[in-house]
Computed example of a mutant assay.
Amino acid sequence: MKNIVFIITMTLLLLGFCGCTDEVIDYNDPDVDLFVKQLKDGSYKTKGPDGYVEVPKFAREDIPKLLTYADDLTIIPSFPLPPVCTYFGTKVRLGECMLWIVESIRLGQYASLGCKMVYADATNYEGIYFLSNEEVHDAAKRYRFWWENSQYPQTQWTITPCYNDPLCGSGYRWW
């Protein structure tokens, strides 16, 4: 009987210690899957060089993996916006945030001060101007198309005003 109690106690202790370990994201070399997992469970807290919780430094080579989550409309508890952002509004969708990261990589700077897309002709930033789930899926499709085509060199026959702008002609923009 003592052996059984001892084994059960040790098992519970071992499980308790294993459950308390936090996986840490390397700010300069982040793992997309771990980042998404932490966003979904609300445990993301990696700080940037200035001491703020920020999106880690994703790079162009992370875009394909980020785009795999673009259609995921899971509402996440929070998203690490730029420190200068004052936006604390509506719920944020994971896929829209992944597109925001892709757009930030494309531009080489923050895509906007909030990870929300709005209609291009919006007169203000009320919720009625935010994109629907179907429109976020459309934007994700446009980003995938842009990414696939950006792999090929631009020639005189492929020059279009929308060559390097995934949202061109969509009626959407970042807010």
Score class of each variant (00 low, 15 high):
residue 1 M to D: 05
residue 2 K to P: 00
residue 5 V to K: 09
residue 6 F to D: 13
residue 9 T to A: 14
residue 12 L to T: 08
residue 17 F to M: 15
residue 23 E to L: 08
residue 23 E to Q: 12
residue 25 I to C: 07
residue 26 D to H: 09
residue 28 N to R: 04
residue 30 P to I: 01
residue 32 V to G: 06
residue 33 D to S: 14
residue 33 D to C: 00
residue 34 L to Y: 00
residue 34 L to T: 11
residue 35 F to S: 04
residue 36 V to L: 03
residue 36 V to G: 01
residue 37 K to Q: 15
residue 37 K to M: 08
residue 42 G to W: 11
residue 45 K to I: 06
residue 47 K to P: 02
residue 48 G to I: 04
residue 48 G to L: 10
residue 49 P to N: 14
residue 49 P to A: 14
residue 49 P to C: 05
residue 50 D to M: 14
residue 51 G to V: 09
residue 54 E to L: 04
residue 57 K to D: 14
residue 58 F to S: 07
residue 63 I to D: 08
residue 72 D to K: 08
residue 75 I to Y: 03
residue 75 I to W: 00
residue 75 I to N: 04
residue 81 L to W: 00
residue 83 P to R: 10
residue 84 V to C: 12
residue 88 F to Y: 10
residue 92 V to S: 09
residue 92 V to Q: 15
residue 95 G to A: 11
residue 95 G to T: 05
residue 95 G to I: 09
residue 96 E to D: 13
residue 97 C to L: 03
residue 97 C to P: 02
residue 98 M to P: 08
residue 98 M to K: 04
residue 100 W to D: 11
residue 103 E to C: 07
residue 107 L to N: 05
residue 107 L to G: 02
residue 112 S to L: 00
residue 114 G to E: 07
residue 114 G to Y: 04
residue 114 G to T: 02
residue 115 C to T: 01
residue 120 A to E: 15
residue 120 A to Q: 06
residue 122 A to M: 05
residue 122 A to Y: 06
residue 125 Y to H: 07
residue 130 F to M: 14
residue 132 S to N: 01
residue 132 S to F: 01
residue 134 E to F: 00
residue 134 E to I: 00
residue 138 D to H: 13
residue 141 K to N: 13
residue 141 K to H: 13
residue 145 F to K: 13
residue 146 W to K: 03
residue 146 W to I: 01
residue 148 E to R: 13
residue 152 Y to F: 12
residue 153 P to L: 01
residue 153 P to K: 06
residue 155 T to E: 08
residue 160 T to V: 11
residue 163 Y to T: 07
residue 166 P to F: 06
residue 169 G to E: 07
residue 172 Y to F: 15
residue 173 R to Y: 00
